[in-house]
Simulated assay, not measured.
Amino acid sequence: MNRQSMLPATARTVRVVAHRGASDEHPEHTLAAYRQAIADGADALECDVRLTADHKLVCVHDRRVERTSDGRGVVSEMTYAQLSALDFGGWKGAEHRGAQVLLFEDLLKEALAADRPVGLAVETKHPTRAGGRLEAELVRVLKDHGLADGRAGLVEVMSFSRNALIRLNRLAPGLPAVYLIERRLRPLRPPFAGHAGPGIDLVRKDPGLVARLKAKGLSVRVWTVDEPQDVELCLRLGVDTIITNRPRQVREQLEGR
């Protein structure tokens, strides 16, 4: 046993991942949100990806654009040009108007240009009419940047879909994979994934889940952890990664321990 593993849970190094960027302050999935997250000290940036009608990989969470833009429609039925004509910032406040839809490749370049290593945690969204083409396009972009084999340690992929994880393992077996969990599942070990991602609601209801996942040899990433008491709970349970909309506040809380 090394010295690090003997330290109490609250003193361990816990990764902070910015959920859709610093999305408590800025519109989610915008360059402003991600640049703020980098400035706030996030270890990695979380994003959701979908395919447009013309097969562009964009960072959008919802199937439809109504919640986060001034437009209407289904992402997969719209071209990148159509999405680019929408305002993806105004819903968060007048000062954010004019933010455009973000190409995944542009986010990747932003992370790579940071003055320190900044990772990406990429969730492929399902169900979608794109099916397996979504994972194929993601891996293609990562290969173009030399990041699909996992050796750089900068990218991990995530999904609630077991089939998506199976496809990702087939296309890029070296990429670390996170099985996202909303409800308690049996068996606890996900397919082709060394990491588990339970939601904070589930962890609150069943704190013993973290220990059971770790007993299976899985590291644990918990989402979306914004409240100080939930950060403390994650620390007590020995969670490895906290995914949050508030990376600066969480970082400050961890550094104050």
Rank of each mutant, 00 (worst) to 15 (best):
84 S>T: 12
80 Y>Q: 03
128 T>F: 10
152 A>W: 08
116 R>A: 13
97 R>I: 06
80 Y>H: 07
65 V>W: 03
146 G>A: 07
119 G>D: 06
137 E>F: 13
101 V>Q: 15
119 G>N: 01
83 L>C: 06
96 H>I: 01
137 E>K: 13
117 P>F: 00
81 A>I: 07
72 R>I: 14
88 F>D: 00
130 A>M: 07
127 P>N: 06
157 V>Y: 01
84 S>K: 15
70 D>R: 10
149 D>G: 01
97 R>L: 09
117 P>M: 06
68 T>F: 00
81 A>Q: 13
101 V>F: 15
74 V>A: 14
117 P>L: 10
136 A>M: 13
68 T>N: 02
144 D>T: 15
103 L>H: 10
132 G>V: 14
114 A>M: 01
110 E>V: 13
77 E>A: 15
159 S>A: 05
117 P>E: 01
120 L>N: 05
130 A>C: 07
113 A>F: 07
97 R>D: 04
95 E>D: 14
135 E>A: 12
145 H>D: 13
143 K>P: 06
96 H>L: 01
109 K>H: 12
148 A>R: 02
148 A>P: 02
80 Y>K: 06
145 H>K: 12
106 D>F: 14
88 F>C: 08
111 A>H: 03
141 V>Q: 10
83 L>T: 06
92 K>P: 05
147 L>R: 03
72 R>A: 15
65 V>Q: 06
154 L>I: 03
79 T>F: 13
105 E>Q: 15
65 V>D: 00
96 H>G: 04
111 A>D: 06
85 A>N: 05
75 V>A: 09
121 A>L: 15
79 T>E: 05
132 G>Y: 11
140 R>Q: 12
135 E>T: 03
131 G>W: 02
130 A>Y: 06
155 V>D: 00
95 E>N: 12
81 A>D: 14
117 P>C: 09
71 G>E: 07
130 A>V: 07
89 G>C: 05
111 A>T: 09
81 A>G: 06
88 F>E: 01
94 A>S: 09
123 E>R: 14
83 L>I: 05
80 Y>D: 02
146 G>W: 02
99 A>M: 13
127 P>G: 11
114 A>H: 00
109 K>E: 14
153 G>S: 04
139 V>N: 12
137 E>C: 12
142 L>K: 04
125 K>L: 07
161 S>F: 00
112 L>V: 09
152 A>S: 15
141 V>L: 13
70 D>A: 10
69 S>G: 09
95 E>Y: 11
132 G>F: 09
155 V>A: 00
111 A>I: 13
128 T>Q: 12
119 G>H: 05
149 D>E: 03
115 D>G: 11
68 T>C: 05
99 A>Q: 15
80 Y>N: 00
103 L>Q: 09
117 P>A: 03
160 F>K: 05
81 A>C: 10
78 M>H: 10
67 R>A: 09
152 A>N: 11
156 E>P: 02
113 A>P: 03
102 L>K: 04
75 V>R: 09
76 S>I: 12
113 A>R: 08
89 G>I: 03
161 S>H: 04
131 G>T: 02
83 L>P: 08
159 S>P: 00
150 G>S: 10
71 G>A: 04
87 D>M: 04
151 R>W: 05
142 L>W: 07
128 T>R: 10
